[in-house]
Design a protein around this nucleic acid. Structure first.
Lengths: 142, 142
DNA sequence: GGTTTAAAAGACAATTTGGTCCTTATTAAA
DNA sequence: TTTAATAAGGACCAAATTGTCTTTTAAACC
């Protein structure tokens, strides 16, 4: 469904969202807590920073923090930044141009599933996910 | 969402389902109509044949035909044969063991989307997709 | 200013996926 | 029984994704 980069990115973002506002978290710590490969996660965080959902700081006391309140960042922004639009708009059978005016055989059935996914991603904020972690009802690793 | 192999496989199956019952369709024709790479499609059809949703015949007048009535074959069988269980059961964040008893942060939201996809795939038969093609309301290529 | 710390950037390696080509096996038909 | 047609199988190649390592850049602190 999502790329590995995206999975790591989402987990990293949720972990960062768990910190106090403005608090910086280092790459090493993020990779450790999320059980993700450090160097690869670094690349992913760069992408997220370039896309403006994350801000990064170099040097001692450096690290990453959210660019805005965790309630203002949703999963769709993260997925879009890392994996692109494909999953939100792509055709189920890979056709370049597939829409209601010239649909592939699965277009309408697929579109409704895809729209459900899109709605879920857009309506899920980092805040609520981080809150679940705080409450101990959900987990970032097994 | 689906692998390329799976996209080609679904298109091929729909096209085969369009033929008269028992009629054999050759690889070359399938690849041409579905605009899929011939040799790669051959591999995919082999997989589908091994999984019993397709039967193949060698020699002159050889080709492929459905193993049973098109109304009895659904998209889930095809996707499962080619891409495996992952898309039906996998965790959104890639956790090996993620379930209701130890859920990842997106588990419940993701599961409901995934279940929607699963339901759609299970309830969509090749027959209805082929019927759409016959009716000219949907298309296998752009 | 020099030193240390941490992210950015780029080169590179490994793996997976997508794709081709060539040979072999099987079967229908001449 | 030979020939031609067609799928199966295996070797191989290409591209994308995943992952590592090394160097550079920026910032804090002495």
């Amino acid at each position: 469904m999502f790329s590995k980069a995206c999975e790591y990115g989402i987990k990293a973002m949720i972990y960062i969202a768990q910190q106090e506002v403005g608090q910086r978290v280092g790459l090493k710590q993020i990779a450790q807590v999320t059980e993700s490969p450090e160097a690869f996660t670094a690349k992913t965080l760069q992408i997220l920073a370039r896309n403006g959902v994350l801000v990064s700081f170099k040097g001692p006391t450096g690290g990453f923090s959210l660019s805005k309140d965790s309630s203002k960042i949703n999963l769709a922004q993260i997925v879009k930044a890392i994996d692109g639009e494909e999953i939100f708009t792509g055709c189920g059978l890979g056709l370049e141009k597939c829409d209601a005016s010239r649909p592939c055989p699965v277009h309408f059935k697929f579109a409704s599933v895809r729209d459900g996914l899109s709605l879920m991603l857009h309506s899920t904020s980092l805040k609520e996910l981080a809150d679940g972690l705080d409450a101990g009802t959900v987990f970032l690793t097994q």
